[in-house]
């Protein structure tokens, strides 16, 4: 213990006579101060005073070591296997005599680690959101240039009635696959003619059954596509440009609307079916979405 009248040019003598509780309060208060406002020199001095007082008190109340050792062997060693090596006196850790300075350091370290962890988590969450990932419940993620789904979405019951004639064949393909969710639009812009369906069953490799229909009015082309996830493997990446993505919710289903070199694309998930409509004229987007079900 330092029994000088100060440290450097400073006078800390008055702290030698202060009650222990007051000194502990000073330390607590210092713990909450900012780095600039804290006084580490004073805290070191107070900690040494407290350590000295605790040592003196411990020495006064020190139990007999041999008696403690015998009691420890009697109470704690009965459950040990017979062939296990008996602990020595050096194995006993005297937790009661850990200095307050070390105790405070441990608390400070834990607090620092917690602070770093929270900062990393916060920065990570912000960074992730900036690139389109909602860490706390995402089904979609996107960057400025790609979009993809990571898990399924809400389920909307299918209505196969009043389907536009261009989509009849597609609706039959969906029903053949047992799709019972509402994913077909009941409205299409005027003047678009059927331009063929495609179908690929990659359930054994990609984990998906894909189908789509092409519609054209001669100058513009719309593709309505459905990818039925047969397991969790399939991951499609959609090309997109850096125009801000819009999330439009309709009948409790979020629709992700973005553009790819200026052409619109709507992407959404209903149950295990990933759906997209590309090439819709901008003025028709919401009318088509409202008709889906």
């Amino acid at each position: 213990m330092r029994n000088t009248y100060g440290s450097g040019n400073r006078d800390f003598f008055k702290y030698n006579h202060m009650p222990t509780e007051v000194l502990e309060n000073i330390i607590r208060a210092d713990f909450y101060l900012s780095e600039e406002a804290a006084d580490p020199e004073l805290i070191d001095y107070i900690l040494e005073i407290l350590e000295g007082r605790k040592t003196s008190e411990a020495e006064r109340n020190l139990p007999d070591i041999e008696e403690s050792w015998e009691r420890f062997k009697k109470d704690r060693l009965v459950m040990e296997p017979e062939d296990a090596p008996a602990p020595t006196k050096d194995d006993i850790i005297d937790f009661a005599n850990i200095s307050p300075k070390k105790h405070l350091n441990v608390i400070r370290r834990i607090a620092s680690i917690a602070a770093v962890f929270i900062c990393v988590l916060f920065i990570g969450t912000v960074a992730a959101y900036a690139v389109g990932i909602d860490l706390w419940g995402s089904i979609a993620q996107w960057t400025e240039e790609r979009f993809s789904f990571r898990s399924g979405g809400p389920v909307q019951t299918a209505n196969y009635e009043d389907i536009p004639p261009q989509l009849i064949e597609l609706s039959e393909m969906l029903q053949e696959q047992g799709v019972a969710v509402g994913i077909l639009p009941h409205y299409l812009p005027d003047g678009y003619k059927w331009d063929g369906n495609t179908f690929f069953d990659n359930s054994d490799t990609l984990g998906v059954i894909s189908m789509d229909v092409g519609l054209t009015n001669g100058s513009n082309y719309i593709v309505i596509a459905y990818d039925i996830h047969t397991d969790g493997r399939y991951l499609a990446e959609y090309e997109k440009d850096d125009v801000e993505l819009e999330i439009y919710e309709c009948k409790n289903v979020p629709y992700y609307i973005f553009t790819n070199t200026g052409d619109s694309i709507i992407v959404w998930v209903n149950g295990n079916v990933e759906c997209s409509i590309s090439g819709l004229p901008n003025e028709e987007i919401y009318k088509v979405i409202e008709s889906i079900g």
Binding site: A128, E145, V208, I265
Partner: peptide
């Protein structure tokens, strides 16, 4: 995630 990105594409909508 960031490096998975490329440019928007004038012909391709999606791939896997």
């Amino acid at each position: 995630v960031a490096f998975a990105a490329t440019m928007a594409d004038p012909y391709i909508s999606s791939m896997s």
